[in-house]
Design a protein around this nucleic acid. Structure first.
Lengths: 268, 268
DNA sequence: GGCATATTGTCCATATTATGGTCAATATGT
DNA sequence: ACATATTGACCATAATATGGACAATATGCC
């Protein structure tokens, strides 16, 4: 509701837990600065965020003081601060799932020679928390920390397929299915059918739905109680793709996610 | 004032800007979780933080909801969340200093064959924002995002040497000089003398003061107005160290930081 | 297994905090 | 140099966070 005039994608402030409304605002501002590819100055922030000047000014000042954002060299614009890098790098190193999965996805990369991603759900998307490049060094427009859509990626669809059916259905209903390529599934029913198929098959498939010229297979990682907690994907450039290879790769992914899920269950 | 009984190092909440007190508390809790090497459960958090249960519970719940922290596999304990990785991923690529410095420190690494760090001031220390390993793959206990002390590292001392004398002196007065190795300078006057020498020489030197068996040289990066904004260091294992080499390395560092400072001045 | 004790999660009146309109100072554009 | 836009500061008021108290649940002990 009530978006400002020219403002693009500003996520609505969610304030379920009472007593945290103010904090949500701070995070919304931080996220807005993180999301914007071009540097923002204060004027632009007032345009894309629904807060009055005084409020926003105070929030920005606090974020600066905490080191979460910093002033750029181009004066008057803001970028993320080093405090955030410090926190993120520690998060990266101490992540349970990532450390458990490391050996397994490395084996998968070595066995296939293709790029492997490890992703976890975050907000309304998936975030890559690890990536191993194909030794054949085909560039992909991903990096660790990238947030991708649930509906257009194999990791997203693998995660959805791992959820209880009603929960999955509910999430799909709430989605805004923006086409990312000409193959992106933009119809909710078609997507739901695709997820059902993924669940039945035991893997998900992205046929150039997120990025042109790249096909992916995905597998779901479950915790001990069979809640999906992440996903692994294998990305194959179409020119290297063929049916027999695909079949072998799918099996390897399934082994990989099974092994990761098992490790998680036994560790606790 | 009023710390809880057994609580160790909890940074005092600074609330200079009015209207941000609550946010400071949230950040203090997040930092406490980040700082503790062993996973914390709720009970331990109540012990090391000066907030009452209800308050802390609400803060932790909000941090969980925002994805800044997550529950570990060991039940009931918390770790940093993946949202942090997602937030920082863009900053990583857009950091001005890092992108400007990249080529220069790469050249330094290639010329010397030793490990190079790029650091910026953050809080009361320096944070590594880039690192290039020696091709000889000598392990070092550093990583990007690590925060190191001003007084025991070459990057820290290089930064201090770049500050105006009074400012430098004031910072040193406020320091708690904890020994990190047997060589760490723990006397404020001795440290000040060392910084003076560094300033005169045009480089800083860490003689196993931060880490045993590692010697470092550091150089200061200045912005256009000659404020120090960062530092570059070269780390040399003692068994590879010798006087002639050192002399050549120092010159190369000085060239490197000069080149980076020049680039920054021309770009803005 | 059952009682006692510790811990976790929830609620709500109150005190504290954030809010956002206003205004002065400064920067920007013409 | 003047007009206009933007920034930074203030403060009465409204909204929020606080933290004690209590219920529900888990844990330890005999």
């Amino acid at each position: 509701m009530s978006k400002t005039t020219s403002g693009p994608r500003v996520q609505p402030v969610r304030a379920q837990i009472q007593g945290t409304a103010s904090f949500s605002k701070f995070m919304t501002v931080l996220q807005a600065i993180a999301d914007e590819p071009t540097r923002l100055d204060f004027a632009k922030l007032t345009k894309i965020l629904p807060y009055p000047r005084g409020t926003l000014y105070r929030i920005v000042t606090a974020l600066l003081a905490e080191g979460l954002i910093a002033e750029s060299l181009e004066n008057g614009t803001y970028q993320l601060g080093h405090r955030l890098i410090q926190l993120a790098s520690r998060s990266w190193e101490t992540s349970d799932l990532r450390s458990i999965a490391r050996d397994h996805i490395e084996a998968l990369r070595d066995a296939t020679g293709e790029t492997v991603h490890l992703a976890v759900p975050s907000g309304n998307g998936m975030v890559y928390i690890d990536k191993l490049e194909s030794p054949r060094t085909v560039r992909m427009t991903s990096r660790i920390g990238t947030r991708v859509e649930l509906y257009s990626t194999s990791v997203g669809k693998a995660y959805l397929a791992g959820l209880p059916e009603e929960e999955c259905r509910a999430i799909i209903e709430g989605m805004d299915l923006k086409p990312r390529t000409r193959n992106t599934i933009t119809d909710a029913d078609a997507l739901y059918a695709d997820i059902q198929k993924s669940r039945a098959q035991g893997y998900s498939y992205d046929n150039e739905e997120n990025e042109a010229d790249i096909r992916c297979f995905g597998g779901t990682i479950f915790d001990r109680s069979r809640r999906p907690v992440g996903a692994v994907s294998l990305s194959i450039p179409i020119y290297r793709y063929n049916k027999e290879l695909a079949k072998a790769y799918v099996e390897k992914i399934q082994e990989t996610v099974q092994a990761i899920s098992d490790s998680m269950a036994t560790i606790v």
